[in-house]
Nucleic acid binder design. Structure first.
Lengths: 158, 158
DNA sequence: CTGCGTATGTTATAATGTTACAACTGACAA
DNA sequence: TTGTCAGTTGTAACATTATAACATACGCAG
């Protein structure tokens, strides 16, 4: 990540306990919705939660096996697709990476602030898309999903 | 493009005269800025203007030669990078495609409405990013560039 | 148990983008 | 004119990201 400067000083990865709690909550919610939180899906979500920042798909693939064995690409891409569909994960198109959702339940449309220096990302309220909704209405478009990503420098990297 | 429905009824490609005019304007402006509008750059911009919608990099590569000969990838990627740097072209990250800028001179930060049905795109005012600026300021981020893309259906495809 | 929809395993391949280095070109000063 | 320097291009190979296709397994309702 840190392409522009080599320091690396944003919030470290979450505590293991936080990861476990989030995994449990996700599993509970999905089960309640009649979905299956399978081992592969759980593992991918665990890796993303533990990272606490965006991770490339092939990094997930490499880290997938507990024993260091990589996964096959479709395994991880399928899990990512499912998790994104369920609002647990977001894809960050501008850097081709994936991040666990931190936006609470309401997280259907998210926006991101991404530090090009240290790789930190912050998920901000979807309400930033209000202006976009207006423009869409004026143009007669019906919006189904949005990609809103701002690149720059975080407070620590300035 | 049209993955969800097979009709294809958005604004057709621009007239050849419009393309020529835009090419000439771009060349004039770049020359005035001391930049060189070389053959490869001109050709890529011409292809994008003529298409009137987002085009994949490898489609540009395939169409590059007047005689049907494809370009080498770096030729096109370099031209795209240059044109994007100069504000003449935008990359649409969510679909890995490129589109000629239609936003006038002011076009440094653009937002897009993209029809997932027919592939039409509309470039809308960057002012939709106002909410994002506020969120960035609150989080202490300094924004350098934004990716704002809304997917949905255009008026004709609804 | 059987059938059906969903999920996974596996192999291969497609699509997208980059690195590295040699060669050329134009501008400009000695 | 000639050197030379920055920017641009040519070319081959490679790296990364993502999907297709098809067989197999799993969970569960009937």
């Amino acid at each position: 990540m840190g392409s522009a400067c080599d320091h690396h000083h944003h919030d470290g990865p979450p505590e293991a306990a936080d990861v476990s709690r989030a995994l449990g909550a996700a599993e509970t919610r999905l089960t309640a919705e009649g979905e299956r939180m399978t081992a592969a899906r759980l593992r991918v979500l665990e890796l993303l939660l533990a990272a606490g920042e965006p991770v490339k798909a092939y990094d997930l693939i490499a880290r997938f096996g507990e024993d260091g064995q990589p996964a096959k690409p479709p395994t991880v891409y399928r899990a990512l697709e499912f998790l994104e569909r369920k609002g647990l994960v977001h894809r960050i198109a501008s850097i081709s990476a994936y991040v666990a959702c931190t936006g609470g339940d309401s997280a259907h449309a998210a926006a991101f602030l991404i530090c090009d220096c240290c790789g930190a990302t912050e998920e901000v309220a979807a309400s930033v898309a209000d202006g976009l909704d207006g423009a869409a209405a004026k143009a007669g478009y019906v919006i189904e999903r949005t990609t809103i990503e701002a690149h720059g420098r975080c407070p620590a990297c300035r």
